[in-house]
Amino acid sequence: MTVPVTPTLLYLDNVTVSFDGFRALNALSLAIDHAEMRAIIGPNGAGKTTMMDVITGKTQPNEGTALFEGTHDLTALDETAIAELGIGRKFQTPTVFELHTVEDNLLLALKNKRGPLATLLSRRTNREQERIDSLLERVRLPAQRHRRAGELSHGQKQWLEIGMLLAQEPKLLLIDEPAAGMTDQETADTADLLRDIAKSKGVIVVEHDMSFVRALGAKVTCLHEGSVLAEGSLDAVSANERVVEVYLGR
């Protein structure tokens, strides 16, 4: 198979996924550039989760192309190999090591980690400490470094998990409904954080909160019945009659 070269970070073309005759994705095509943030919106059942499952190798499409960096065929790789390529995924509910400190959570997540027990018992290097310090600053948690992760607020746990993703030095982050359950200030801070990350990495954010989507300032893709219904600025997508009919409901 000759794989076409594309300059985009992520390239999906004609991706179709069927479950017992139901098309969760229906000839979906999408392209994400390097250092681009894309907001994905759409009603429940639109295919948002299935799309992320295909990108991360959890679900194999029935047909279509899924390329990463132009040369890596995601449909031929398992979840571990895809993660090692530099694709990180954050689910809606934060998953952190609640009994460990914030600092140790980041240490455990560092790229080329040696395993949980060995990492915690070993003496961290200056480079690792500098990396952890930088991550703590980036995700707004330097004052929480010695607290157990389980003591953090919901929003802080979300930031910690994003920091744990960043510790693995991904090229593309998939973030599922990060604003859910956050305070107004945490929501604003999260939008700032994701905009900062998108200066150097690809970021896909699945979100229902339109105020948060607006704060992201990103290009918006609306999915419906497994396909792209509309794409563009939030104002343009929100003005689309079909988007209003099937999703925004006004």
Rank of each mutant, 00 (worst) to 15 (best):
7 P>G: 12
7 P>D: 13
10 L>S: 05
13 D>R: 13
14 N>M: 07
17 V>T: 14
23 R>F: 14
28 L>Y: 08
30 L>D: 03
31 A>L: 03
37 M>D: 02
40 I>S: 05
44 N>K: 09
49 T>G: 07
53 D>M: 09
55 I>E: 07
55 I>S: 01
57 G>R: 04
60 Q>N: 02
62 N>P: 00
63 E>N: 04
64 G>P: 12
65 T>D: 04
66 A>L: 15
66 A>S: 13
68 F>V: 09
70 G>V: 09
71 T>F: 09
76 A>N: 07
88 G>F: 13
91 F>E: 07
94 P>C: 08
95 T>Y: 05
97 F>Y: 12
98 E>D: 11
102 V>S: 14
104 D>L: 00
107 L>C: 05
108 L>Q: 03
109 A>T: 00
109 A>L: 00
113 K>F: 08
115 G>E: 00
117 L>V: 15
120 L>K: 03
124 R>F: 00
128 E>C: 06
130 E>F: 00
133 D>K: 12
134 S>G: 08
136 L>Q: 01
141 L>C: 02
142 P>M: 01
145 R>G: 10
146 H>E: 07
146 H>Q: 03
147 R>G: 12
149 A>C: 12
150 G>V: 09
153 S>L: 07
155 G>T: 08
166 L>R: 02
171 K>D: 00
172 L>P: 13
173 L>C: 09
176 D>G: 06
177 E>V: 10
180 A>M: 07
181 G>L: 06
183 T>I: 12
185 Q>M: 00
186 E>R: 04
188 A>K: 05
191 A>D: 09
192 D>I: 14
194 L>G: 08
194 L>I: 04
197 I>D: 08
200 S>D: 15
201 K>V: 13
208 H>C: 06
211 S>F: 05
212 F>L: 11
212 F>M: 08
220 V>S: 05
229 L>E: 15
230 A>M: 12
231 E>D: 14
237 V>H: 02
238 S>F: 04
239 A>C: 06
239 A>N: 01
244 V>E: 07
250 R>K: 13
250 R>G: 13
